[in-house]
Design a protein around this nucleic acid. Structure first.
Lengths: 189, 189
DNA sequence: ATTAAATGTTGCCCTAAGTCAAGGTTTTAC
DNA sequence: GTAAAACCTTGACTTAGGGCAACATTTAAT
């Protein structure tokens, strides 16, 4: 098993190496080119992805064509369209690589089978859901009522990697402001 | 066990009545007056609440004193500060009754004990987390980039009960707009 | 029932941030 | 290495919606 994934599991539930090795066969390594899509809006999401290197982003496009980035997963994080994975309905979001990206992916059905049968994976899943929920909530809470400067400052404090590593266009779509506004703000910081 | 709660469990996992009766002792019925607080910002949340009648709201207050309503639970729904319940850290949100409200409440530790030991409750919890996550995500997605008219229309379509049953002040704080703007919009609909 | 307090409405003004356009810079593709 | 495309920056203009004030209406408390 890839050390990053082993670390991930062990941080949640300290177990011996051999007790998680059996999970290895479920995960397949795959590398995607920069800008390649792992999932497009309307497709049913079939995998859960664990990022080994690179970066995934989940984003939606509204009727005017404006992109809205909802989640960014760097190395050591799981990323997928949970809403589609859970419901087995077409996703309303896209998953795309922002860099050349290597992932370990696991089939939806294998994943939920493990959630049902393996206490470790049940716990891992619970933890993913709990942190996804908390993170999302915190972001809504912190953003609602915050003006655009406060949003940029929030990002500087909480996820500086996003600001330093990704393009302004992506950052702006993550913050819910226009690239113009972001550019003006950065000039003032 | 209260029929509403039994229904809730059975919808998630069809089991015989006697197989869920053993959960009854964990839940205590309690009635709160209108506007009473079940949790205040800074306190550690000790219960998960299931609403039998009435309505709970979760809200935060920002530094300017503006309230931000983040979740509304009517009859037949669970409501609590999951971020505080999960982490056992002080809540940054308040839980308040908007009407005279009767709940069944269960202690945090009992709840998580059942999550660990009882497959039904494990599943119930997973389901609560999954739907909380999906709901939150959908709301962010649908709201980001939506102007205030679109937000009101979204509410009309998805949660009309909120518009008809709650005050404009609460509805506005749920939509992230001012009561002034909501009042003007309602005049035009 | 009476009064006070909270909530809702509406006009006027103002500001933050969006839009458009034009020019500069960086990245990508061959 | 060069051209094309994508991206960033900045100025000028526009606009949605916030803030305040004044008044109307509803709700709550005794």
């Amino acid at each position: 098993m890839h050390p990053l994934l082993r670390e991930y599991f062990q941080r949640l539930s300290p177990v011996a190496d051999q007790d998680i090795e059996y999970l290895s066969p479920y995960f397949t390594e795959k590398t995607y080119k920069k800008n390649e899509f792992l999932l497009r809006e309307g497709e049913i999401c079939k995998y859960n992805y664990f990022v080994i290197s690179g970066c995934l982003r989940l984003f939606t496009t509204n009727k005017e064509g404006v992109e809205n980035t909802r989640y960014l997963a760097f190395e050591g994080k799981f990323g997928t369209s949970f809403t589609s994975l859970i419901s087995e309905k077409p996703a309303f979001e896209n998953i795309q690589c922002l860099e050349k990206t290597t992932v370990l992916r696991i089939f939806r059905d294998d994943f939920y089978h493990l959630v049902e049968t393996e206490p470790l994976i049940n716990k891992v899943y619970r933890n993913i859901l709990e942190s996804a929920y908390i993170t999302t909530q915190k972001r809504i809470y912190d953003f609602q009522g915050a003006d655009s400067l406060e949003r940029v400052q929030w990002l500087l404090e909480h996820q500086p990697k996003i600001l330093s590593r990704l393009s302004n266009k992506v950052v702006a779509s993550y913050l819910g402001i226009t690239p113009y506004t972001l550019s003006r703000l950065k000039a003032k910081l």
